[in-house]
């Protein structure tokens, strides 16, 4: 069965390593914080100016001055620190953040990503996404494999205005874990109960399928 948003987050959380600073984007990526594997310590950075982001506050303890980049009320963990936006993006551009997880509307087999604009329909802006994808060494995209019309979002070439070029190396969808190498997608794992055939049929980009494709362990 295809994963839900929490399942995607849970699979991405397996990529976390002890001691990493991690930036989580809005949407599915935010959920990754709920599945930190036992025995490892990571610090979450939110680009509006906090390192050491904690869980949502208890009801009645919300502070309008303490939010994440999704404008949600949050808490600060022990040892947290606040800083201005220029310092925040110095951390990001300067590659002091080890992992960036963000959502996408489209990903292409050359590592291009599009997630900020649908011409004529939706223009919300790129926020910090362009800075993040241009600088991060390690980017994981969290997304659904297809759009609501059932069309593949895993493409040969992006059709929407780009957020970044050649930057994505790993994609986790509701159906599969994919790596991007040598201009092609490589199927690494499939969601529990999802067939290789289904993934192949829902992937528009070139996909390299090994003889054995293990199921994700969640």
């Amino acid at each position: 069965m295809a994963l839900d948003k929490n399942g995607i987050a849970q699979r991405i959380a397996q990529e976390l390593r002890d001691g990493w600073y991690v930036n989580l984007g809005i949407g599915i990526p935010t959920l990754v914080a709920n599945y930190i594997p036992e025995g490892i310590e990571v610090e979450f950075q939110s680009e509006n100016g906090i390192l050491g982001m904690g869980p949502f506050p208890f009801e009645g303890e919300e502070d309008a001055d303490l939010i994440n980049a999704g404008k949600q009320t949050i808490t600060a963990r022990k040892g947290a620190v606040f800083f201005d936006s220029a310092t925040s993006f110095a951390m990001i551009r300067g590659q002091h953040v080890q992992l960036t997880v963000l959502g996408a509307m489209e990903v292409a087999q050359n590592g291009d990503i599009a997630n900020w604009k649908i011409p004529g329909k939706m223009v919300k802006g790129m926020g910090g996404a362009m800075d993040l994808v241009a600088s991060a060494e390690n980017i994981i995209v969290a997304m659904m494999h297809t759009n609501r019309a059932g069309e593949s979002k895993i493409l040969k070439e992006c059709t929407l205005p780009l957020t970044g070029v050649g930057c994505v190396k790993k994609v986790v969808t509701d159906l599969a874990v994919l790596e991007i190498k040598d201009g092609r997608f490589h199927l690494i794992e499939r969601a529990p109960g999802v067939s290789v055939e289904e993934i192949v049929s829902k992937t528009e980009g070139d996909l390299v399928v090994p003889d054995h494709v293990p199921e994700m362990k969640l």
Binding site: P55, F56, P57, F58, E59, A64, I67, Q72, T73
Partner: peptide, 12 residues
């Protein structure tokens, strides 16, 4: 006024 845009909380 300090309006909150996305009030997110967790249950005790």
């Amino acid at each position: 006024e300090k309006r909150i845009e996305q009030r997110t909380v967790r249950q005790r």
